[in-house]
Design a protein around this nucleic acid. Structure first.
Lengths: 202, 202
DNA sequence: GTCTATACCGTGATAGAC
DNA sequence: GTCTATCACGGTATAGAC
């Protein structure tokens, strides 16, 4: 091979930026080409179509969102510590890629079928189910107040992820800039864990 | 006037459905025309452009999302009861229009400037600020555990709204159908209020 | 007010020279 | 591998007959 893979990488980086920003329908191949500093023809040379390119970016985004969380639930820890670890991991991770959740959620809603296969080859479901069982056991033992484990799980995810999804709206309502927002999310780690663990005290 | 406003209304209804489903960039004027049972030319006759039509639908959606919440915060009630009322109202309202939040949030992220003026002519901010102050007073008095009122507010919104935003994802992960989802959200009202009020006990 | 036909342009994708 | 030129299509929008 004469060429190194720099061009492919540049294209993917550019595609990631544009697709995440504008979505599949809103993104233009020209935008991606400009961002990568090449011309449209090259995009089709390396990746056959817009859809092919998008699929790569989308899959990568889903993996990034799910990575780590799965590992945490797998660890051998008390449920409470898993909650703390998950919140810590999730907010740190999202602070680095704040636009990912909205992108993924929007594209899934545009094409729900796309997501189904992605989940079949992930171990997320079994690990999450196991965690829900662990919660149920603690509640049965009386070491944790009884609540619906599923609702609890959804609440945890909501409290961590929603601020990033609703970020433009929240910033508009509460008048905070980007830097203040990131700082607030950093503080939010402690708030969520305290808030949740307090509510779960037996 | 020879014609009644049925056609206008049909167009708006169709536009609402298509725009909310596919977003501004993804929606086609042809889709809207088909949905309304007329032809494309009529769309431009009644509403000059796609953007004009979109703006009407979008403004309506924002109003629908904000309406009611504002009234609740304005009422003369203890903070705890406001929380209960807000959760009840919000989930009931979203169960009737589950795709609105994702639509609004996505379009705001595409064009953040659009939202700024909408908020300036809404009394949402002052009422919300007042509510935050009420929470702070209760915490000062010791009738409520001390937490950051802003983080609490964001958490409430998150727990109510996120399940609808992440609905396709949640349904995929936890394998529930539409009907079961609506029922689960109905149950969620009680979960959220119990969960939050328990955590806020002094 | 409602339709058909069409102008006009942007877009994804390809052909073909180098 | 990289570029320019171009095709084919679909999109918004308008003209103009009825």
């Amino acid at each position: 091979m004469q060429t190194n893979n720099t061009t492919e990488q540049q294209i993917i980086a550019a595609a990631r930026k544009i697709f995440v920003q504008k979505g599949l329908a809103g993104a233009r191949m020209q935008d991606i080409a400009d961002e990568a500093g090449i011309n449209k023809a090259m995009l089709h040379y390396y990746y056959r179509s817009k859809d092919k390119l998008f699929e790569i970016v989308f899959d990568e985004a889903v993996s990034q969102l799910l990575a780590g969380v799965n590992d945490i639930f797998e660890k051998d820890m008390p449920a409470r510590e898993k909650i703390v670890a998950a919140v810590e991991h999730y907010i740190t991770s999202l602070n680095k890629a704040p636009y990912l959740p909205l992108f993924v959620v929007h594209e899934i809603s545009q094409n729900p079928e796309r997501i189904l296969q992605k989940f079949s080859n992930t171990a997320l479901l079994p690990n999450m189910r196991m965690f829900l069982k662990e919660l149920a056991v603690e509640m049965e033992n009386g070491t944790m107040r009884k609540v619906d484990p599923w609702q609890l799980m959804v609440s945890l995810i909501s409290m961590c992820v929603f601020p990033f999804v609703g970020r433009p709206l929240l910033q508009a309502i509460f008048q905070v800039n980007d830097k203040a927002f990131a700082k607030t999310m950093e503080d939010r780690k402690k708030f969520i864990t305290d808030f949740v663990l307090t509510s779960l005290k037996p």
